[in-house]
Simulated assay, not measured.
Amino acid sequence: MTCTVCLRDLYADELTHQACRPCTDRVGLDLAALAGPNGLYARLADSLTPGGSSSGPAVSGSRTAPLPVRLGPLSLAARGGVVTVLQTWLIDWHDLLGYRHPRWEGGLQQQCDQVVGRLRVLLPWAAEAHGAFDEFARELRDLRRQCETATGGERQPRRVPVACPCGQTLRITLDTAGVRCPACSTQYGHAEALGLPLAERRAAA
């Protein structure tokens, strides 16, 4: 059996799980990065106004007035953004477990902290029993990257071309969970994908 997130073979003590231990730990770190007074969600508020983050240089001399808020951070911080996505997942988990509908209290920051805390409590169960844990892990990772970009943190990772033995070029990042070759249908886990030779070097050989 393989991990549904990184696609590597599961160890004997992980065979009843959807995800391996490293992937489960990574999801926990992604959740933790969003919450708290210094978390990514809280930092979105400081990035709402133009020039409010280090994501790019200020531009002067424009003939039109700048937007009063930056739409990228706003869409993530507002209802329907980060908090709503996480709450939707928690509702799904509660339904599957037969728990009552979670209740949200306070403003969006407080709700973010509440839903992250609850998701982290239920994370071991989800990694073992939730059939869409891989989808949750990917969506959470995307949310974290969007928040990092919006707050002037990490940029989108650069994709590196590597060569499948069949000759097909695959594009991966350093944190690629797994990739399937469209030409020969070979499935690579995280470690296997990173172990493939660079496409340029292979072609030049």
Results as ranks from 00 to 15, higher is better:
Q109V: 07
E139M: 06
A205W: 12
V82R: 05
P66Q: 15
L194C: 11
S54T: 13
C184T: 10
E192V: 06
W93G: 01
I91K: 14
G178M: 04
G81P: 03
R26K: 15
A127E: 02
L196S: 04
E135R: 13
R138Y: 10
T88D: 15
Q18E: 11
A45V: 01
A203L: 14
R138P: 02
A137L: 05
T151M: 00
D9F: 12
S54W: 06
S185A: 15
G106H: 08
L170M: 08
G131Q: 15
Q168M: 14
R8Y: 06
P182T: 10
G51L: 07
A126T: 08
Q156F: 10
Y188P: 08
T64D: 14
Q18V: 02
R26T: 12
H130S: 07
A204G: 06
L10N: 05
L10T: 07
L194R: 07
D113Q: 03
R26N: 11
L67K: 10
T84K: 01
A205D: 11
G107F: 01
D13S: 03
S55V: 01
R43S: 04
Q114F: 05
A19E: 01
L29C: 03
D92C: 04
T24Y: 00
E200W: 09
P37Q: 09
P37H: 07
C3Q: 02
S185I: 08
Y188A: 01
W125Y: 14
C166M: 12
A19G: 02
Q110C: 00
A137N: 05
L123P: 05
G152D: 04
R159H: 12
Y41G: 04
A126W: 04
C112Q: 03
A65N: 15
G80E: 04
R171I: 00
P68Q: 10
Q114K: 06
E192Y: 07
R21Q: 13
D25A: 10
V82L: 13
T176H: 05
C166L: 09
A12H: 12
A150D: 10
Q110R: 13
G72E: 09
E105D: 15
R21H: 10
A129K: 11
A127F: 00
V115E: 01
G51I: 05
Q168H: 14
Q156R: 12
T16H: 14
P157T: 08
C112L: 10
P197K: 04
R158Q: 09
C3W: 03
S62W: 12
A177R: 08
